[in-house]
Amino acid sequence: MSSTDNNHGPSPQISSFGRSIYRLRQEQVHSLEENHRSSTRDSELESFQKQVTDRFEDLFRASDDELLSIDWIQKLLNAFICCHEEFRAILLNNKEQLSNSPLDRSISEFFERLVKALDICNASSNGIEKVRAWLKHLEIVLCALSSNQRALSEGHVLRARKALMDLAVAMLDEKDCSSVFPQRNRSFGRHNTNKDHRRHFTALSRSHSWSVSRSWSAAKQLHSISSNLIPPRGSEIVATNGLAIPVYTMNSVLLFVLWALVAAVPCQDRGLNIQMSVPRQYSWGVPVTSLHDRIKKRERRSSNGLLKEINQVESCIRNITDLVDSVQFPLRDEQKMEVEERLKELRVVYGALRDGLDPLERQVREVFRKIMTCRAEGLDYTG
């Protein structure tokens, strides 16, 4: 073979064939990678739906006595945190798709809801602080009426009555104070201090450092969060490779958890008229809507909150107030026994609040931090 033959490159046909094989291999590798990503994404989405379902089915299994207790609310917030963390992972693993239509719109709406959720966390934290302030009055009642090696005197009863009056005022919203206070005032046997106590309560309310404005409304905020929260259509699910489903799921979980929190603790302008309607194909829909119905049935007008321990405090206060208004000296043996029985009930409720409020508030703050982190990450994802 001549030297000129040796210097010739491969024929055009061979070169074209080689490029075809290379492209085919690239397409095969790309297809395999795409299939792997799709399979991983499907597993993530399925795992997320399962966790949400399992968490809320567990919450739904609570007895009527356990529902809306401090322990149950903590369990609810923990469920939210766990679901939220898995949802964040889904967003992180699919962040390149978050700016694509139609997913970009639903993601943007989700992050807007997160901002509104921060206000509800703040208001709930303030509500917990309000309940914590009640403990001081309850402690005075317990100290005044406890007969540890001393006879119960009229002075002790008067001290307890004053603490009960202060507590009753503290438990009222400022807007309800003028209409409700006179009746409560008469029940305590104090006829001349109405204006003084009303001014005192107003001053306390205005001096409290609220992190939401005085015109802020929990009911309106919940309505704003629930606005336009609708299940994704089939075309949207296909166009987003299924990612529209976890976004809708997390929006619904967020709404329910915030609604339950507002239901449980004192909040400005509480209102629970939020509808929860979830299509049957979402497995978590049944426990969520069932819990919504169970809680809704407990709503009471002018309630400080549906938290179990708050209801117990209100019941104890009514019983002890009736008792101190009716006692006559010298005390009869049956009256002494009734005082001890009422104090025993109050000690249990006092202990539950004293031990439960701090962990509950810490968990509300943790929810706040998780939401803040997710919102900050969202700014990076969506620009």
Rank of each mutant, 00 (worst) to 15 (best):
M1A: 15
D5L: 14
N7Y: 04
N7F: 15
H8W: 10
S11Q: 12
Q13M: 05
Q13F: 11
S16M: 08
R23I: 13
R25Q: 10
E27A: 15
Q28G: 10
E33G: 10
N35S: 11
R41E: 01
D42F: 09
E44V: 01
L45N: 00
E46T: 14
Q49F: 08
Q51Y: 11
F60P: 06
E66S: 09
L67M: 05
L68R: 05
S69C: 04
S69G: 04
S69T: 08
D71Q: 10
A79L: 07
A79S: 15
H84K: 12
H84E: 07
I90W: 00
I90M: 01
L92V: 10
S99M: 10
N100S: 13
E109F: 15
F110W: 13
F111G: 09
F111L: 15
R113W: 00
L114Y: 09
V115K: 11
I120L: 11
N122G: 08
A123I: 11
S124H: 01
G127H: 00
G127V: 02
I128F: 02
A133I: 03
A133P: 01
K136H: 08
H137I: 07
H137G: 12
V141R: 07
L142V: 05
L145A: 02
S147Y: 04
Q149C: 07
G155F: 15
G155Y: 10
H156R: 13
H156F: 13
V157H: 11
L164R: 03
M165Q: 15
M171L: 06
M171H: 07
L172E: 11
D173T: 11
E174K: 13
C177F: 07
F181K: 09
Q183N: 11
Q183M: 08
R186Q: 05
G189L: 06
H191R: 09
H191N: 15
D196G: 03
R198T: 04
T202M: 12
R206G: 02
V212E: 10
A219R: 12
K220N: 05
Q221C: 15
L222M: 02
H223P: 02
H223K: 12
I230F: 13
P231Y: 02
P232S: 05
R233W: 01
S235N: 08
E236P: 03
I237W: 04
V238S: 07
T240N: 04
L243I: 00
T249N: 00
N251Q: 15
L254C: 12
L255A: 11
W259C: 00
P266K: 06
D269C: 08
R270V: 09
I274N: 03
I274T: 00
Q275Y: 00
S277D: 14
S277G: 04
V278A: 02
V278G: 00
P279K: 05
W284R: 01
V288R: 02
H292Y: 10
D293S: 12
R294L: 06
R294I: 06
K296I: 03
R298E: 09
R298I: 11
E299Q: 05
E299F: 04
S302A: 14
N311D: 10
Q312N: 05
V313N: 00
E314G: 06
S315Y: 07
N319V: 07
D322W: 02
L323K: 12
V324R: 03
D325L: 03
Q328N: 13
F329Q: 04
P330K: 01
L331R: 05
E341Q: 14
E341N: 11
R342T: 03
L343E: 01
K370H: 14
M372H: 07
M372V: 13
G378M: 07
T382V: 12
